[in-house]
């Protein structure tokens, strides 16, 4: 009844306008509710940002430092160091990072890897 009365009062232009607005509203809601900000990988050489990429694309990154090349691997949203010229290989032993705010570093070769983005369980990790 109410809908019929409403439709009866609408002109053709009104109907098009309402349809357009409804589509835009649904699209906006999908954008807000259905999608979170993607996480990014940031790689620093010393204090300089050397490389950044979305975390949802698998890749390998080779970064040159004072000791040689550090090889970083991104697979299934996880980042790890797979090869390093440093002596104790602590960076390889740290394993993979995947949460926003996680850090991985090879201090001797001055390579720093950070994951940035929203939705992490924590802002900072005490370890």
């Amino acid at each position: 009844m109410a809908l019929g009365s409403l439709l009866a009062r609408m002109t053709r232009t009104d109907r098009w306008l309402v349809l357009l607005l409804m589509l835009a509203a649904f699209a906006s809601l999908w954008f807000v509710l259905g999608r979170s900000v993607g996480r990014s990988l940031l790689v620093y050489a010393g204090d300089t940002l050397a490389f950044t990429a979305p975390l949802d694309q698998d890749r390998q990154i080779e970064l040159h430092g004072p000791l040689g090349d550090t090889l970083i691997e991104v697979v299934a949203g996880k980042v790890r160091v797979i090869s390093s010229p440093c002596s104790r290989k602590i960076c390889i032993g740290m394993g993979a990072i995947q949460r926003s705010g996680d850090l991985l570093a090879c201090v001797p070769n001055r390579v720093v890897i950070r994951i940035e983005g929203e939705g992490g369980e924590y802002d900072l990790l005490s370890r």
């Binding site: 607005l21 954008f31 900000v37 204090d47 929203e118």
Partner: peptide
């Protein structure tokens, strides 16, 4: 539409820097 725009996902406004 207006609410959706105001609530749109944005990158964190934090400024983060690292140093050794």
């Amino acid at each position: 539409l207006l609410l959706s725009w105001s609530l749109r996902p944005r990158a964190a406004s934090d400024v983060s820097r690292t140093a050794l």
